Amino acid sequence: MKSSRSRLLALVLSGVLTVTAACGGKSDNSDAAPAASGSTSAAASPEADARTELANAFNKLNGVTMAYSMTTESGTAGITKLTGSSDPATRANSGSMTITAQGQEITAEIITVGTDLYLKLGLPIPGLDPKKWMYVDGSKTSLSKLGLGNPDDPTNVKGLTDAIATVERTGAGAFKGTIDMTKRNLPASSAALIQEMGDAAKSVPFEATVGAEGYVASLTVKMPGAGQVPATTATTTFSDFGKPVSISKPAAADVQPAPAALLSQFA
């Protein structure tokens, strides 16, 4: 049986992002659906207008640098807080994570550049220098197996409009609706979780806001419980769109390989 600390290490590497992986999936770089032609005799419905506006706001995130902050609350299982920035052009992402679970708190720093992952944990691991970064070759161990999204989509929201089942405007720049998670292109672990949810996976509640610049400013998704995974609320905010982001790999002297025993938990 794994020790409590081993389970916490697993939580760190998976980022407690099973839910956020389920919320994301494929990266969609297509443009939003075009607005209705002016020659159309019937006016677009309020839901169609809301869907188009929200789709435009999500698609506007594609390819733009940004800062983000995510809080995932899984009942008594734990709380994860992740803040970071990303540069899709270089497929680079950096972030800091705090996980509170089982009465303990673990901090982690993460850098991804392409398929290269660098991780620094705020707790001692036998045989490792706590001041150095652990390196994981994502081309050999898929980042999705570690619960991490694509480097160019760290918060797993691109293409989310494909799965929106219902949507309505609740105010200026405010929306709510449901997401059909069965329509997402998911890693095997997340797909299995969605299957356990049954019909509830087809109408997962969400709320979103769109800022003055036309980008999605916040997204809250409330995933139902499934199996041993409790109901989870994930709230993400986005900011600093288009501002310069500088993310680089750590110097070779500051890097060490991640221990095989730790990575074996995600084989």
Score class of each variant (00 low, 15 high):
residue 2 K to C: 10
residue 3 S to Q: 04
residue 12 V to E: 02
residue 14 S to F: 15
residue 15 G to D: 02
residue 15 G to H: 05
residue 16 V to H: 14
residue 18 T to N: 10
residue 22 A to T: 04
residue 22 A to G: 08
residue 33 A to I: 11
residue 41 S to N: 09
residue 44 A to Y: 12
residue 44 A to S: 15
residue 47 E to I: 14
residue 48 A to E: 14
residue 50 A to W: 01
residue 50 A to P: 03
residue 51 R to L: 04
residue 52 T to L: 15
residue 53 E to D: 02
residue 54 L to D: 00
residue 57 A to G: 05
residue 61 L to R: 10
residue 68 Y to D: 02
residue 72 T to N: 03
residue 74 S to F: 04
residue 75 G to L: 06
residue 80 T to H: 06
residue 81 K to L: 06
residue 83 T to F: 03
residue 84 G to N: 11
residue 91 R to G: 00
residue 94 S to N: 15
residue 94 S to M: 09
residue 103 G to M: 02
residue 104 Q to L: 08
residue 106 I to Y: 00
residue 106 I to A: 04
residue 122 G to S: 05
residue 127 G to L: 03
residue 128 L to D: 02
residue 136 V to E: 03
residue 137 D to M: 07
residue 137 D to L: 08
residue 144 S to H: 06
residue 147 G to R: 05
residue 148 L to E: 02
residue 149 G to A: 13
residue 155 T to E: 01
residue 155 T to I: 15
residue 164 I to H: 06
residue 167 V to S: 07
residue 168 E to K: 09
residue 169 R to E: 05
residue 169 R to M: 07
residue 177 G to A: 15
residue 184 R to W: 03
residue 186 L to S: 01
residue 187 P to F: 15
residue 188 A to T: 08
residue 189 S to F: 08
residue 190 S to W: 00
residue 192 A to D: 01
residue 194 I to Y: 05
residue 197 M to E: 02
residue 198 G to Q: 04
residue 199 D to M: 13
residue 200 A to F: 05
residue 200 A to W: 00
residue 202 K to L: 00
residue 208 A to E: 11
residue 209 T to A: 01
residue 211 G to N: 08
residue 213 E to A: 13
residue 216 V to H: 08
residue 221 V to W: 00
residue 224 P to C: 10
residue 231 A to H: 11
residue 240 D to C: 12
residue 243 K to W: 11
residue 244 P to V: 14
residue 246 S to C: 04
residue 247 I to C: 03
residue 250 P to S: 11
residue 250 P to G: 05
residue 252 A to I: 13
residue 254 D to G: 13
residue 255 V to K: 08
residue 255 V to M: 04
residue 259 P to A: 08
residue 263 L to F: 13
residue 264 S to Y: 07
